[in-house]
Structure formats: C-alpha cells, structure tokens
Simulated assay, not measured.
Amino acid sequence: MPLEEHRPPLEHGTLPSFAIVRYQAGQNEEAHPGVLRDGHVYPLDLEALGIGSLNEVFERWGELGVRVREAASDGGRPLEEVRLAAPVEPRQLLQTGANYRTHVIGLVVGHRSPDDPRPVEEVRDAAAKMMDERAAHGEPYFFIGLPQTVVASDGDLALPGFSDRHDWELELAAVIGKPAFRVSREEALEHVWGYTIVNDITTRDLVFRKDMPEIGTDWYRAKNSPGFNPTGPFAVPAEELPAPDKFQLRLDVNGETMQDATTDDLLFDLPALVSAASQTVPLLPGDLLLTGSPAGNGQARGTFLRSGDELVGSISGLGTQRFRCIEEAS
C-alpha cells in the first residue's frame, strides 16, 4: 500500500469470534487446550476427540473442526478469569527476512552511503525497482528460530543485559495444518490451518558478526533469547479470516504507533512463502511460519526497547497482544 494512502485505524482490543487457545485456570496449573467463543474460554477435551495433542487438531481440522467448535457449549469461563499461554506448541519456527516492500525500500534509503551523490528519490526509485525484480525473479529469505522462544503474549519480556539494542517486529504468522513438503504455490494454502500474532524481538547489534564479517548474519544470538517471540493470544482458523493479503497490522510502543501496514505490501505472499519453505524441510502441523516485519522498527529510528516500555500489537481478526519490558534478573 502506498505510504500516502490512508486507511481507518486498526482498533486494539477486538476479539475474534472463535479461536483456539491454551490457558491456565489456576496459578500453577499447566496450560490446557481450549476454544474461545464470544469472550469465553471453554475446555477442549483432546481425549474425547481421540487425539493426543493440539497439533493433531490443526492437522485433522477438516475431520474434527465441527466437533471442536461444539466444545464451546459447556464449562466456559470469562476470558478475564483465565491466564492465556501461547496458543500453539510448534516443533519448528520459520522466520522470513526482508519481506515488506516498503520496509526494505526504507532500509535501502536509510543506509545509503554519505558519498552517494544521487537524490533521495532516485535512490528510492532504484530500490523499488530492485524489490520488484526480486519479487518477480527472486526467492524468499528464511532463517530458523527456536520453538522455546514462543511464549505467552501478555507476560513480561525480560530484556537481556548484554545489549541495549533490543527491537520489535510485529508479524503475521501462519499456523501449519496439514504437513507440507515440496508443495506448489497453488496448493500452499491448503496446508495453512490459520493465523496468529508474533512479535519477533531482535537484538540488533548481534545480527552481524563483527568478529567474522565474512560469515554474515547471526540469527541464533540475535533472535533466540528467552521470551523473544511473544505469540498469540489466539490462533484463528483461516475460514474465520480474510484472504492473507488483507490483514492490517499495528504496533504501539508506549502509546505511540510505530508499525502500521497491511499484508498487501508483502514482497512474497503467503502461498509463495509456504511453497518455498516446504521445498527444503517438511512443514509440520502446528509449526509457525512468520511472514516478515513491516516498516517501523526501532532500528530505523535509533530507538530501542527499555525497561518499563509497554507494547500493544494487533492484527485484524486476530486480537491484540500486550506485554511490558522489564530488566533481566541479575
């Protein structure tokens, strides 16, 4: 979407009408699978469904979806009476880099050499042409995160003390349903169960290895500290939602909107991402495929997360996640 095009602001706080959740009813309980309907959380009895894990719900949704929806009829609690965990337990976490056209163009302009004689608009036009060429003939850029970084979206985020350059990246994440291995672009969405929200926290000064510049990026250290992927609060099936290119994303930090974009700005759309990722490794039920971060990160502003910062992120149809940054315990 062009920067000058205006759209109505995304409202924080809107609940999906139906979603999968994982929740704790008591202080020290393990998280249980459940369903959200009309602001209430209902238990989901996996044993009664004849399955052993939430990932099987995603895999066998065509067979079990109606019965899962029927679970929202008895024993419900108001949402505010339970504590939500991350709604998924992925075995694999795949992340996509440099995938919002406007974001990448802005990075190219912002990082141009001081010796570059070209006017800013000429640099911007050249970057736009480069992105269009990449979209037409290039491939998505993936890296892998650790599943244990997937945590509840309403807890405190402890900022590691080894850096003061921790950044936010609100992202749409696809939840894989049927296993996908070397699927075509045309088949790809058949393997997506639904969607959730992830804030892919990044330690910017660890992205590039200063001691080994020839190696390039170090995503392991930059993106895998404890709690660096607040996820949820809900996982919503695809049939409840618009087409993947119609999502609106918004992130506020301390009440100031930092990211505001729509997924029609994706360089590689969701079918292209699922297909490309599946060419290398089988995607498994419950896995998360993050689609990339739109413009508005702290790096571009020279602003990074600090203890006490409050982040509120929403994606249309998927609800809102809220968490606060704290200092890491010494």
Rank of each mutant, 00 (worst) to 15 (best):
A235S: 15
T303A: 01
I105K: 15
P271V: 02
S316I: 04
S153R: 13
R204E: 12
Y100Q: 02
A127C: 08
G52Y: 04
I197E: 10
D200N: 14
V253P: 02
G177M: 02
R77S: 14
D269F: 00
L15S: 03
R124G: 03
Q259M: 09
R91L: 06
V57G: 03
P8E: 10
G308F: 01
P9E: 11
V21P: 02
V120T: 15
E121V: 07
Y100R: 09
V108G: 01
T102L: 03
E328V: 07
G62M: 04
D125Y: 04
V312F: 08
D74Y: 02
P282T: 09
P244I: 07
G216S: 14
M212R: 15
R7C: 03
P282M: 10
Q321F: 00
R322N: 09
N28T: 07
P242A: 13
F18I: 11
S293D: 12
E81F: 01
I105D: 14
E47D: 11
I315E: 06
R204L: 03
L10V: 13
E139Y: 11
W61G: 03
A276P: 11
P160C: 07
G292F: 01
G308C: 01
D260Y: 08
Q279N: 12
L241C: 10
V109Y: 03
L283N: 00
T102W: 05
V68Q: 10
L318G: 01
H166T: 14
E133N: 01
P16E: 07
E256K: 13
G194T: 09
E29C: 06
L94V: 15
G232T: 02
E47M: 06
S17Q: 09
P230C: 08
T291E: 12
F58S: 02
G313D: 07
G65H: 10
V120H: 14
R221P: 06
F143K: 10
R324P: 02
S184Y: 05
I315P: 06
S314P: 05
T96S: 08
N224Q: 14
L93I: 10
K178S: 05
D115A: 15
T291N: 11
D115V: 12
A173D: 06
P140D: 13
D74W: 11
G138S: 08
S278H: 07
L159I: 00
D287S: 09
M1A: 14
R118E: 12
K223I: 05
A71E: 15
P233A: 01
L170T: 05
R185D: 14
G110W: 06
W168D: 05
G161H: 08
R37H: 09
L93K: 15
E310N: 09
D45M: 05
Q248T: 09
T231E: 04
E190F: 00
R209I: 00
